[in-house]
Design a protein around this nucleic acid. Sequence first.
DNA 1: ATAAAGCTTAGAGTGCGCTCAAAGGCAAGC
DNA 2: GCTTGCCTTTGAGCGCACTCTAAGCTTTAT
Lengths: 114, 114
Amino acid sequence: MTGLSAHTLRYYERIGLLRDVQRNEQGYRVYSEQDVSWVQFLLRLRDTGMPIAGMQQFAELRSQGDTTASARREMLEQHHLQLEQQLAQLHTHLHNISDKIEYYRELEKKTTLL
Amino acid sequence: MTGLSAHTLRYYERIGLLRDVQRNEQGYRVYSEQDVSWVQFLLRLRDTGMPIAGMQQFAELRSQGDTTASARREMLEQHHLQLEQQLAQLHTHLHNISDKIEYYRELEKKTTLL
DNA sequence: ATAAAGCTTAGAGTGCGCTCAAAGGCAAGC
DNA sequence: GCTTGCCTTTGAGCGCACTCTAAGCTTTAT
């Protein structure tokens, strides 16, 4: 459902990203819908470049309840800001690479003329 | 000039990303302007998520001269395409995170009312 | 003349984020 | 009843991209 392997889910639990995962009578993990959307949120953070330490911090705040809402908001705002900068740089890179592709097209033209 | 440490520059040379770096009488490396802009290009590839293996492939083609121009162009086009997809996903993530921030703002409003 | 700083090399070590191994338990199908 | 397969745990191993160490040589400053 999340794309993560069982191994990785257990790893995330071990390092405190996933907490209070329920178990059935046999001691097997039973993930709730909340768990799933929490993991999906973690993946969003991960895919936008947040290191695990940051996610751990966020998870810790989350486990402390609603009183940490503003701390969590601030973390996200900070991350959001970085992301916008990252995005801007990516645009620069993209254009630069386009230029290079164009350069190669020209080079190929000249080369095939020989 | 590139932001890379001496260690990393030598590492890049060792793994074939940097080639034919000139030496002075004492055997010390002397980097040319071409070397510098090549490294800057490599960093562009790196910062846009290309793994070292990809850069090695590109460096290998480059060392084979102008006849590999089209192969290099194709590599860049492929990379460009991936980058555009990455960029689109990043936009999605960005919006989603904005929404979450908004959610926290609402939560804070309600919480402070108590 | 000598100490400090920076260059050389091969090879070892590091940090991150998984990923797997081993040994044992439970549950369903033949 | 037994095999197959997935679950459990602790702890080890891996791949990537650096990053540093050690021993030795050169250059520069005092």
